[in-house]
Write a protein that binds this DNA or RNA. Structure first.
Lengths: 180, 180
DNA sequence: CGCATATATATCAGATCGACTTATTCTTGT
DNA sequence: ACAAGAATAAGTCGATCTGATATATATGCG
């Protein structure tokens, strides 16, 4: 989903500044299936404002640099719904961990197992973190996505735990060629 | 992982043309955790050739347009190993499906359930497709990643199947507001 | 007091995406 | 038999996205 639609989606839940939009996209459950950078958000908001899809309100002072609070207009809501009615593009995962694992034969066996153990620890930490997000009945989809994320990370961790020994056995000798 | 490293990784398994590299990256198990476009691969190969990380050999005729066959050099192998020894960046998932699901309250209930059913069907098809890839003992990592992928898709499908009824119950009325 | 982190907006080079172009061969349906 | 379409093969190009950096102030911590 492009950054403009992402911004509209966050604003649909309530007005926010560019900084606040980024914070929400960086938190669960958004962080589970999306990510963006300031370098995409600020230009996107400027263009949405030009198009009339969002309204801007400058909130001065605050003892901070000025805050530009954006809110959805009727046109913005129309654009968001149009995007929501498009057939979804396929998922796209980019995982350095799986890439490294796939090329584990070029690394020492110990390093690969270390990577796997670190991965398991990271997944466990993520499950714990998501588990702490208190469920709120007013946002059913929020909770559903949270549970989906927890299930996903838990499943990944379980596979690695269940197959770690087999992987260790599979990996050749004490260490393979480290090139040159 | 950047496209240059991806190209080096594929080439480490044997020489190939840009087109063939793309095909391999589009097939399992690479397709499970990476994707790239021609627009990234061809410039990357040109730069790798300039740097001396790959050697080019023009294979003429073939009854097709000329084929440029690339192969890894010692320098290329060094660069690949250097990249493999870097700590892996975190995973990045981009899923339009989960985005749509999260904003399911802006869509008719029927459409959301349709989306979920389609998703389950897609995941089942993926599991079946990966299951058909014959295991080959000579490439243990290949098989391991394949199994990991199957487990992942199967887990996702199971969660959706197990929670479909609850989701249907959660979604408000016959259909929610469709904007405006 | 100094250092790190949080708030807040923004730019910019470089990387990437996706659609398009060109041209030939192989496959598939009717 | 023949047209249509997919596959092979290399590439370009505008739009977009990433990640680092700049700028400035406030708050928390030892």
């Amino acid at each position: 989903m492009d950054t403009r639609t992402l911004c509209l989606a966050v604003l649909e839940r309530g007005e926010a500044s560019g900084y606040e939009i980024k914070k929400k996209l960086d938190s669960p459950p958004y962080s589970h299936f999306q990510d963006t950078s300031f370098g995409s958000i600020y230009p996107a908001l400027n263009r949405l404002a030009e198009e009339g899809a969002v309204a801007v309100r400058a909130q001065e002072q605050e003892k901070r640099p000025d805050k530009k609070v954006y809110s959805l207009t009727a046109e913005g809501r129309r654009q968001l719904c149009a995007a929501l009615h498009q057939p979804p593009a396929g998922d796209r995962l980019r995982s350095d961990f799986l890439f490294l694992l796939f090329h584990g034969d070029l690394l020492p066996k110990e390093r690969v197992l270390e990577l796997v153990d670190q991965r398991i620890a990271d997944l466990d930490a993520l499950v714990a973190q998501l588990g702490e997000c208190c469920p709120c009945a007013s946002k059913p989809m929020h909770d559903f996505l949270l549970e989906l994320g927890i299930d996903h990370y838990r499943s990944s961790a379980r596979f690695l735990r269940d197959n770690r020994a087999r992987l260790a056995h599979t990996l050749a000798g004490p260490h393979a060629q480290v090139a040159e």
